[in-house]
Amino acid sequence: MNIALKFWSGYVRATHRWPIIATIVPFIPVVAIWSIVANSGMFPRAFFPAPVDVMRSFISLTYKGILPDYLQDSLIRLLFGAAIGVALGIPLGILIGSSRLAHRICWPVLLFFQAIGDIAWLPILLIWFGFGLTTMTFVIVYTVLFPIVLSTVLGVQSVHRDLARAAQSLGASPMRVLWEVTLPGALPNIITGLRNGLGYGWRALIAVEIIVGTSGIGFMMFDARRAGSTVEILLGMIVLGTLWYIVDAWILAPIERATGQRWGLVTS
């Protein structure tokens, strides 16, 4: 008991010094259990590979250059789609957030199209654009767009009316009010929207690559599915999870916190 406690306090201190330990250690038991189950022969190895197999596949695919290539393809698609989504979403959100009439007209339409969801567009997109980049980009833009628009609207509406009035009575033109007050005021919400949007976009990308696929992580997973190779499917999932973890926990979440906290606009 005493030793366990000592161990625990050592762990707590270590995680305090190097927070990354707190991120990695919880995965150790998961991998261990996985390894034990796989080695126990409960399931056929081809069906339920061990961590070592996945590791081996990771090394070989990286060495052959397939994994880096696919990863790059997926990331570029995601970033490209997200960039377009942001470029469309923020202005649209500002318009809908600041104009009553635009809100009346656009809000129901927005909710409806959001409800249709990205994936359901695939069949008709395949008819329109075929299996290709256009289809994939469309789906990602579509996915990223809604969270950004919806949270931009929320952000714009959450800016206190007195702030815009203060700027006006200090001589700001409508464009300046937009730039100096509305945008910064909505920024924390916009970043939250971006974070959600990227999360959804990532999933959509995988689905599209599975169905449309010619390359990318999703394609790799589904190609492996066709060949019955569980190892590569698991590898794909792990790569996806890790990548998103890094992007979300180490880039997006800190940005989100930083904007909100410094200004005291902390949103939970």
Partner: peptide, 19 residues
């Protein structure tokens, strides 16, 4: 006609720009 810099306003809610 509308707000302008010839009339300065001090708000009960302060209305300082947080950013």
């Amino acid at each position: 006609k509308g707000p302008g810099p010839d009339r300065g306003v001090v708000f009960q809610s302060f209305a300082l720009f947080p950013w």
